Simulated assay, not measured.
Amino acid sequence: MKGQEWYQADSVAEEYDAKRFSKGGRLIDRREKRAVLEALAPVEDERVLEIACGTGRFTVMLAERGADIVGLDISDAMLAQGREKARRAGLADTVEFMRGDAARLPFPDDHFDAVFAMRFFHLADTPAKFLAEMARVSKDVVFFDTFRGSSFRTLYNWALPMGSRLYSREEVERLIDGAGLSLRQDDHDFVFPYGFYREVPNSVADPFWSLDQAIGGNAVGEKLSSVSYWTAEV
């Protein structure tokens, strides 16, 4: 997995949310949470597994909406942040966080109603293996996002500390088919990449987001989008 040492550092976990979801990054957080909710809804009383849960921003959000959720991550430091987030939300006894390997999930077949991973597949060295495991333990929905190769993402990808794997639509469709899944829906966003939004104030991000959606709302715009959301079913 790319950047494991970087990702698991205590300092990275402590600053992760503040660096990525302040300023214009708040818009990214809102959009990603909406994508997860749209893919998994309704979540109340559903058994959900989040792969690479990080600091638990999706885990806690879904628990607040009544999901029976497990958050799995390889980083103890990230899991500690997630547990603290759950504690502050009054959900410490509701959400389960556990350390584990996404390539060997410690659950039986069809154990969850839905399995999802956000900000994960751009780091995956063996994406087919990870997706097959997600499909194995889900009895309904598998949801994940990818970064696209035909986008502005390529312009700053080299500067990221852990690198980033970029995907074409054809590659993702092959992965989905290879995991025995069927594509239910795909959505594409962020012609202006994440790095741009994180650098501008929140008040500036919103007008650019409107322009972003206008550009991305057609076939050409889809090809320029830097992020894709994939909802598949077993």
Rank of each mutant, 00 (worst) to 15 (best):
F97N: 01
R57K: 12
D110L: 13
G66Q: 03
V12S: 06
S182F: 08
L123H: 15
R184W: 01
V142G: 08
A117I: 00
D110W: 13
Q185Y: 01
D212P: 03
L37N: 04
F196P: 05
K23Y: 05
H122I: 00
D109S: 15
F116K: 12
W209L: 08
M162K: 11
F196G: 10
D206T: 08
A132T: 11
R57S: 05
R26T: 11
G217I: 03
F107R: 09
D76W: 13
M61Q: 10
R153W: 14
M162H: 11
V137M: 12
A219S: 04
V200M: 08
D206K: 09
K19S: 09
P106S: 11
N218D: 15
V36F: 00
F147S: 13
S11W: 15
V200G: 09
A35M: 07
D45I: 05
E44Q: 14
L27H: 04
R47T: 06
A80Y: 00
F144N: 02
M61G: 07
D68Q: 09
A103M: 09
A89V: 02
D177E: 13
S228M: 09
T94E: 01
P106N: 12
S182A: 02
P106C: 06
K2V: 02
P108M: 04
D206E: 12
E14R: 13
H188N: 06
Y194Q: 00
D125T: 08
L79M: 02
G54C: 13
Y194N: 07
F21R: 08
Y167P: 03
F107N: 12
P161W: 14
E32C: 01
V48A: 06
K223Y: 03
A124S: 06
A232W: 05
R104P: 05
G90T: 00
F147A: 10
R136W: 11
N157E: 15
F121Y: 10
G90F: 00
F58R: 04
E96V: 05
